[in-house]
């Protein structure tokens, strides 16, 4: 059974799942850390999930798509909604759009910091990101907070990290 468990684990979990998050179109990564009333969110998205291509824009339409994605990802207050009762406000946004230096894949990295006045009320964070980016269909999420750590898979049907 111990071996069975191990076997199940080996089969079910891709080796090095977390060492270098694989680039899968349609799937992004979200890390949420909660510490002393501060929420730190790190988001990693394949560019394809946000705009539908992974190279330098070729025309005005593609340029416009990049601008729109940039705008949506900076509007963090609309993108991530912590429990309202926790009274959280956005502190900072850092967004790295890909530079198209070459290579096959391009990722968007973004990080956000919220500060919560009533951190004890914080029960979860809902995201509207699936409404923003229709090509995104899941977010593999890790969280670490006062209630321990956990993993979750966010999907358009279940866009909430809770604990």
């Amino acid at each position: 059974m111990r071996k069975t468990l191990l076997l199940i684990a080996l089969l079910a979990i891709p080796p090095a799942a977390r060492s270098a998050p694989a680039h899968v179109h349609g799937a992004g990564h979200l890390d949420v850390a909660i510490d002393k009333g501060q929420i730190t969110i790190a988001l990693e998205l394949p560019l394809d999930a946000a705009v539908g291509f992974e190279r330098a824009p070729k025309n005005d339409k593609e340029k416009a798509a990049l601008v729109a994605a940039d705008k949506a990802l900076k509007d963090a207050a609309a993108l991530f909604m912590p429990t309202p009762a926790a009274n959280c406000t956005l502190q900072s946004v850092k967004l790295d759009m890909p530079q198209f230096a070459g290579g096959e894949h391009a990722d968007i990295d973004a990080s956000y910091v919220f500060r919560c006045a009533a951190a004890a009320e914080l029960k979860g964070i809902e995201t509207t990101i699936f409404k923003q980016f229709k090509r995104l269909y899941r977010l593999e999420t890790q969280r670490s907070g006062p209630n321990g750590q956990g993993a979750a898979r966010l999907t358009p049907k279940h866009p909430v990290v809770s604990w």
């Binding site: 199940i8 079910a12 979990i13 890790q142 750590q149 956990g150 993993a151 898979r153």
Partner: peptide, 21 residues
């Protein structure tokens, strides 16, 4: 090559994996 895991995350992943079973 090193690997760092959050223990709680790894356990959740284990549960997800054996959840079907």
């Amino acid at each position: 090559p090193l690997l760092a895991v959050l223990p709680g995350v790894a356990l959740d992943e284990l549960w997800q994996a054996i959840g079907t079973v």
